[in-house]
């Protein structure tokens, strides 16, 4: 399966990915100027953290969130291997939050659903990678990820 690769040499911590994810994916208006004032506040699915590094859901091969979800809201797309939240059935129990080893599932109390990256599974290409001004984010096959030298 394909995963997002982040080149730490190129990631400058500019937060463009966060901004666009929050606008394009999370907001209802899809316009930055309006998204900023939306209630509930749009929640981006990517976190620029550490030194810096744009971290999103890693779509684990053996995913603890899938085991912890008590009603099958957390699902894996059998074709792409991507893990996504079926928001209509989420009961906001935060069991997935409790077990996510990367801490990238947002327990949104205002929206009452678990919010995480689905790697833009319904779009052609992940928005974070598309907008990154330095090209730090790219999509690679998981088996090739570790062959790349940083």
């Amino acid at each position: 399966m394909k995963v997002l690769m982040v080149d730490k040499e190129k990631c400058t911590g500019c937060h463009q990915c966060e901004l666009w994810c929050g606008t394009e994916i999370a907001s209802t208006s899809k316009e930055l100027a309006r998204a900023i004032n939306e209630e509930p506040h749009p929640v981006p699915r990517v976190y620029v953290e550490g030194k810096p590094f744009a971290l999103q859901c890693r779509h684990c091969e053996s995913a603890p969130c899938l085991d912890a979800c008590p009603n099958g809201t957390m699902r894996r797309d059998p074709e792409t291997g991507l893990i996504y939240v079926n928001e209509q059935t989420c009961i906001a129990c935060w069991m997935c939050v409790m077990v996510c080893p990367f801490g990238i599932i947002n327990p949104s109390s205002s929206m009452k659903v678990a919010i995480k990256c689905d790697r833009c599974r319904n779009m052609g290409y992940p928005i974070c990678a598309e907008v990154c001004p330095t090209g730090a984010l790219s999509l690679v096959e998981r088996k090739d990820y570790r062959k790349k030298k940083f």
Binding site: F53, L55, C60, R142, R146, F150
Partner: peptide
């Protein structure tokens, strides 16, 4: 040893 950890460890951060 899981791939998702290895990937991020390889980044050298």
């Amino acid at each position: 040893s899981e791939p998702e950890y290895k990937e991020l460890m390889d980044t050298g951060l």
